[in-house]
Design a protein around this nucleic acid. Sequence first.
DNA 1: ATATATACTGAACATTCATTCAGTATCGTA
DNA 2: TACGATACTGAATGAATGTTCAGTATATAT
Lengths: 199, 199
Amino acid sequence: MNKKRLQSEDTKKRVADAARGLFVKKGYKATSIEDIVSATGSSKGNIYYHFKSKEGLFLYLIDEWEQEWEQQWKEKESLYTTTTDKMYGVAEQMVLEDLNHPLTKSADEFFDNSEKPSDVEERITEMVKSHLTFYQALIQQGMDSGEFKHNDVEGLSIIFESLTMGLSQMSRKLNQKDALVLYRLAVNVFLNGITKNAT
Amino acid sequence: MNKKRLQSEDTKKRVADAARGLFVKKGYKATSIEDIVSATGSSKGNIYYHFKSKEGLFLYLIDEWEQEWEQQWKEKESLYTTTTDKMYGVAEQMVLEDLNHPLTKSADEFFDNSEKPSDVEERITEMVKSHLTFYQALIQQGMDSGEFKHNDVEGLSIIFESLTMGLSQMSRKLNQKDALVLYRLAVNVFLNGITKNAT
DNA sequence: ATATATACTGAACATTCATTCAGTATCGTA
DNA sequence: TACGATACTGAATGAATGTTCAGTATATAT
């Protein structure tokens, strides 16, 4: 039970990769199972053999993506000394990872489909919460270290999350280079608003 | 030909209002013609008699909304003296109007449906462009008057648009009061990042 | 070599939804 | 009053799409 299992995992990965690509490009709803079938050569039934449903496939990709993000961040975090640098680092990773890694589009799309209180919506809400917690800790850290002015930490974290959400939508048409410039400028504006020493 | 025409216009308005309410609440895709039928008591056919299509109905609402926004802004603009005040004013109107007035949700949703290069997508792109032009002029004005530091005007306008796009998504669950606080804080952060005199 | 679990196929099914259209009702007007 | 236009009805259509399932192939274990 080896060659078979390996092959099976391979097809599962192939399906996941194709689906990811399509979701980035077209969004969740606009991507049909049929599209994935065409892209993989695999059959409909086989996709349902490997994944519970379309939604299940999507959730699988989200999890995968989140894990990778976390891992990459851990690798980078130690390289930054100041909180300021960390915030630039986050923005950079966002452009590098999130724009490549696709669910941005589908995720935003999902946000607006309150139709079904599906697992996915819960999942996304959960994701936003964890973002907020993350930013909150980061900003608090900056305040404690004296880099940032004291202010409403929770509010600022929401604002930063909002800013990045908006940026991810706006920069969809941009190439990576331009997006990077835009994100940097955004963090710049955000920091000079909360940093003690004016630039 | 009067009573009839008035009645007709009335039903058209009733349909539009109901559709607006549903689009805000559920988003564009999640709102079916059937939903609008249920909400109005009008028949499917009648909706198609008054509006070309679901998309046409949506576009109608967008136009209506944009006109109202512009009008309300004109009434307020003269009340603000500094550009700073104007920006707060814009934010305030956004919360007061945009959150009430609904298409926010559906509009964002549309952004992610690149499936069809439909009129609507073009329309929304156009809207974003006009926003950017507006913010650009406002920010330029602030720079000229000496209120703002000199900086990349286009970039800053994109950032402000992004920020507000993100805020509109994040504040969906908030009540008007809390949203207002959040938006004010956001503009505060944005301005203290580009205003010469630190707070 | 045979049996069995695993991997896979694709036609059929079920549902949702926008849109159409042939027909009916209502109102203004000649 | 009768005719014509305008306003409205709702069943039927058609297309898209997620999901199921009975059946087939393949590889591993006995």
